[in-house]
């Protein structure tokens, strides 16, 4: 199937790098806001009842999510060094 890109196709909104930058900027703001919402919990606007005490720390889930994903990717990169093989690895005979 799969026709290839045509030269006369209209550029999409996402094709413009400045729009991508705008999108990212909006995303940074949203991230900042979602952590700052925790201020509302500190002043008691909503109850941040957690089963564990660390759930009530300021921005706990945000920091944990960020660190978890960085750790995940860095660990996976290390894993790749050990387990990555050519795509036809199992089709080749007699290789260790």
């Amino acid at each position: 199937m799969g026709a290839d890109a045509k030269h006369d196709e209209p550029p999409r909104w996402l094709d413009d790098p400045s729009n991508v930058r705008r999108l990212l900027r909006a995303f940074w703001v949203v991230c900042a806001l979602i952590v700052l919402v925790d201020v509302l919990a500190l002043v008691g606007v909503y109850d941040k009842h957690g089963h564990f005490r660390w759930e009530e720390w300021f921005g706990f889930h945000a920091f944990y999510g960020f660190l978890a994903c960085v750790a995940l990717v860095e660990a996976a990169k290390l894993l790749r060094r050990v387990i990555m093989r050519p795509i036809d690895y199992y089709e080749r005979e007699g290789e260790p």
């Binding site: 991230c31 919990a41 909503y46 945000a62 999510g65 990717v73």
Partner: peptide, 27 residues
């Protein structure tokens, strides 16, 4: 509490993806 903590977790996971992508550290 459920909604906000979950959004914090997910948005900052996405943030990590963006940061790793933009800094070229994503494999």
């Amino acid at each position: 509490a459920h909604v906000i903590t979950q959004l914090q977790l997910l948005l900052f996971s996405a943030l990590a993806f963006c940061v790793l992508m933009l800094s070229g550290r994503y494999p």
